[in-house]
């Protein structure tokens, strides 16, 4: 099982009109600075050998000045060299929303499963998630949100409910269409009252 290249993964999501934060591979601090162009960015070291990027120390968030970006770039490079081959990804920051996880895996008995839950650092702490087999119907997606204790937080008391239902249904279709996907994590997806941004993608497949 291998990790799909980040930019390829973004393209796959886009085919199902799932939006992710704009990102680009950068090979020098100068590349990263010109990608930022004055906006806040994140830098991430990407390697097949370090699937948990944050735990490996390969993520720097909320960088804006040229010096911050250059410093973060060299720090990541130093750590990532232990996980060679690697690439460094620059990504526009998305801030201020609720972090959720949308995921998928293959169950030996029931086939493709889809999951939604409270994400980011809360995944492990609260284990608040709901699960269905793919493909899901609109009714299933509604039920999944209704089952979550954090349902009102994620949907902003219903304001973004239809957005979340659409995101679940698109993800279900993507999982179902692509037999080769073994595991999927969109974690975190930053949800705002009227939109969302996929901020990290992990597609594992054959």
């Amino acid at each position: 099982m291998a990790l799909l290249d980040y930019i390829e993964a973004q393209k796959l999501l886009l085919k199902y009109s799932i939006k992710s934060a704009p990102a680009k591979y950068v090979s020098t601090p100068g590349d990263a600075i010109s990608f930022a162009n004055g906006r806040r960015i994140a830098l991430k070291g990407i390697s097949n050998k370090a699937l948990h990027k944050s735990k490996a120390g390969l993520v720097r968030l909320d960088l804006v000045s040229d010096t911050e970006i250059s410093k973060a770039f060299s720090e990541i490079k130093a750590i990532a060299s232990k996980f060679a081959p690697y690439k460094i990804l620059a990504q526009q920051m998305s801030t201020g929303g609720v972090e959720i996880i949308i995921g998928g895996r293959i169950d030996p008995q029931f086939g493709k499963l889809i999951l939604i839950g409270l994400g980011g650092i809360y995944v492990e702490a609260f284990k608040d998630f709901s699960l269905r087999t793919c493909p899901i119907t609109r009714f299933d997606a509604e039920e999944m949100l209704a089952e979550l204790r954090s349902g009102d937080v994620i949907t902003y008391k219903g304001k973004n409910r239809s957005g979340m239902i659409n995101l679940l249904m698109k993800t279900s279709k993507m999982l179902n269409d692509n037999d080769w996907i073994q595991e999927l994590d969109l974690n975190p997806v930053i949800v705002k009252p009227e939109s969302y941004d996929v901020v990290d993608i992990r597609v594992l497949g054959d």
Binding site: L51, K127, E143, L184
Partner: peptide, 21 residues
Amino acid sequence: ARSHTAALAGDAQAYEAVFRQ
């Protein structure tokens, strides 16, 4: 597990999801 999803959603959770569905 290699993903958060697989770590959260094991066999028992899959059965429960199917029953609910």
